[in-house]
């Protein structure tokens, strides 16, 4: 029953159903990180898992394309820079890393955009970074397979 790129029909079917949920779950964990357990790192890892699952289920025999690799590297750097910029803007309020937007209220979503923005920056950085690591190792595996004559 292997009639296309990627894994078997069952895996592809289940992945198609799950992918959206996993992705949204990752975003939620990151966005609500200032209220509930979780945060940018955990959310980023979940998002990266969704991306990894999509490659595993639907990916072809070739390695990831150059465009994808470039996009992931750029996003990774952009996330880190966003975090650094947020920290540097703290000098507006007097000190590195100072919350320059507003101090939050406990248990109110959106009362502290500083933390949310930082979580988003970490989400982008970690999601792209972890996925980039996966892509690098997949690409390496393909090169090794080709050199050692494995199908």
């Amino acid at each position: 029953m292997n009639d296309g790129p990627g894994m078997s029909l069952i895996v592809r079917m289940v992945s198609r159903w799950l992918l959206g949920f996993v992705f949204v779950y990752g975003l939620g964990v990151a966005l609500f990180g200032h209220l509930t357990p979780g945060g940018g790192f955990v959310g980023g890892v979940v998002v990266a898992c969704a991306l990894v699952m999509s490659i595993l289920a639907f990916g072809g025999k070739q390695g990831p394309g150059a465009f994808l690799a470039r996009a992931v590297t750029t996003l990774d750097a952009a996330g880190a820079l966003m975090f650094l910029a947020l920290a540097l803007f703290g000098y507006v309020a007097g000190c590195f890393f100072t919350n320059w937007i507003a101090r939050g209220e406990p248990a109110t979503f959106g009362s502290t955009w500083f933390v949310i923005l930082m979580n988003v920056a970490i989400l982008v950085k970690v999601g792209a970074g972890a996925f980039a690591g996966f892509l690098a190792i997949v690409a390496f595996g393909h090169i090794l397979d080709a050199e050692e004559g494995r199908p």
């Binding site: 690591g133 690098a136 190792i137 390496f140 595996g141 090169i143 090794l144 050199e147």
Partner: peptide
């Protein structure tokens, strides 16, 4: 992750 990448390269 870095170690795995190095191991792959060593293998190569």
């Amino acid at each position: 992750m870095l170690m795995v990448a190095l191991a792959l390269r060593i293998r190569q």
